[in-house]
Nucleic acid binder design. Structure first.
Lengths: 261, 261
DNA sequence: CGTAATCAAATTGGATCCAATTTGGCAAGA
DNA sequence: TCTTGCCAAATTGGATCCAATTTGATTACG
């Protein structure tokens, strides 16, 4: 099964701003379904009907129907010709595709931020993210807790640049990708059995943050864009890990932030 | 009012592949609402409630609720903090933003198509599009009918390249932008009072198609990407036309293709 | 034995009903 | 007169009911 062994932390405070209008109930259904698709509880290609899902989640068909539409929009469900939805197969290729798209979109954001200039608050926010990272890596090693911290400021760093682009369409376009598991900045995975290797990897990623900021801060749009594009590949590690079998070794930990959009 | 005077042809055969699961009824509600938002019948910022809309469209609240969710996903409605939806203001800036995003996405598609190589059928399809255009412009002038033809093969040209990229995520990301009026390839506008000017403009656009194809066909990824990005600005004309008043002169005609996704 | 037709079961979409939450106004008291 | 509290109206989400469409299966006929 796909991503069966993943240990997704879906029980975290949401960091989104687009509060979809359903009350707690509908939200929970949507999030639960996303989770079930992501961890393979609903296998790819499986046909999902409203009634069984509704019974399984202990709600009526109405919130399930709404959720299905949303999940279709997000690309996690595909609609059959005549009736019924099927779980869309999320292959490593598709994740790689989504990451490539994220690369160009965030690259655009970085370029626009460079060209248009960033606000003072955004600038200091970015610098703060960089400092936090510097402090983290100056120790020479990383703990699990550090990974949480990294995950947090990494997300803020990226989001700040996207906002600084002052192009709403970028955020909109990204919000779709972010529903695909492991394609968004809001999820990082690391190998507990090779923390020194991971230290080097994330340190490199952090160094990229530094030079991206440098480019943006100096108005070097093309440089910022190219760097950010390349930086997106930092996440591409998943697909290397997953490889052809699409199974994840147990010693990997995934930090994910749930998304309510 | 926003885009009030636009003469959108929404009554055309749908060209989409993602058939959203609603029966005719729900489809109609969704399309009607899109139309009402696009042509300003529902002014930007206006609060839309379920009951009045349902009564106005002669259906129950259920299909309206579903449609609201979809429209929120598409970015045409924004959800209030506590309750209710409001029509999102679609400013020229937002359209320009969306077009910029489309540029980088289609640019990515063009690059990938170049790098991975296009299939023989796709290649001949592109060539066919180019020939059709050549025949059109060789006359030295354009009629209204020609515009329809142009619109048609222009869309096919772009879609073929997107498919040729073999990156599903691009199509997914674009499908959101395409709901914003005038941000997608499926809509073109032209000024009937200046058909010679329009001839030159669309001819230029068609020439861009030629060199984009040349780049792709020769595996020149970076060139194809840059050209396609620039080509996206061909549509940017709307925002120039609209200007600050956001009103469209009567002598403009818009060809739009309705989208059922 | 194969094919076609009809009927039943399942599934989905729409409408209506009910509950919960919010908003807004009106009134009472400081 | 201003503020506060309470109540009513409105709005939204969920559940259930009903109709329409589709699937599939069984049976009958060639």
């Amino acid at each position: 099964m796909l991503f069966k062994q993943f240990d997704l932390n879906y029980d975290r405070p949401a960091a989104t701003k687009t509060e979809t209008g359903m009350s707690k109930h509908g939200q929970r259904v949507l999030i639960t379904l996303r989770k079930m698709i992501a961890n393979g509880e609903l296998p790819p290609g499986e046909r999902v009907a409203e009634i069984p899902i509704a019974e399984r989640l202990g709600v009526s068909r109405t919130p399930v129907r709404i959720a299905f539409r949303t999940l279709e929009q997000e690309g996690l469900l595909r609609k059959g010709d005549r009736r019924g939805y099927t779980v869309r197969a999320i292959t490593p290729t598709e994740i790689a595709d989504a990451i490539e798209v994220r690369g160009v979109l965030e690259g655009l954001a970085a370029r626009l931020a460079s060209e248009r200039g960033i606000s003072l608050p955004a600038r200091s926010h970015l610098i703060e993210c960089l400092s936090t990272g510097d402090a983290l890596f100056s120790k020479g090693f990383l703990t699990d807790e550090d990974m949480e911290i990294y995950h947090d400021f990494n997300m803020r760093f990226h989001n700040t640049i996207i906002e600084a682009s002052r192009n709403i369409a970028i955020e909109d376009a990204l919000s779709r990708n972010d529903h695909l598991p492991f394609a968004s900045v809001s999820s990082i995975a690391f190998n507990r059995d090779d923390m020194t290797g991971e230290f080097r990897r994330f340190n490199f990623s952090h160094m990229q943050h530094h030079i991206i900021f440098d480019a943006i801060d100096n108005g070097q749009g093309a440089r910022a864009e190219a760097l950010m594009r390349e930086h997106a590949n930092a996440a591409l590690r998943y697909t290397q890990i997953l490889g052809p079998t699409q199974d994840m070794p147990d010693n990997f930990t995934v930090i994910e932030r749930e998304d309510t959009a």
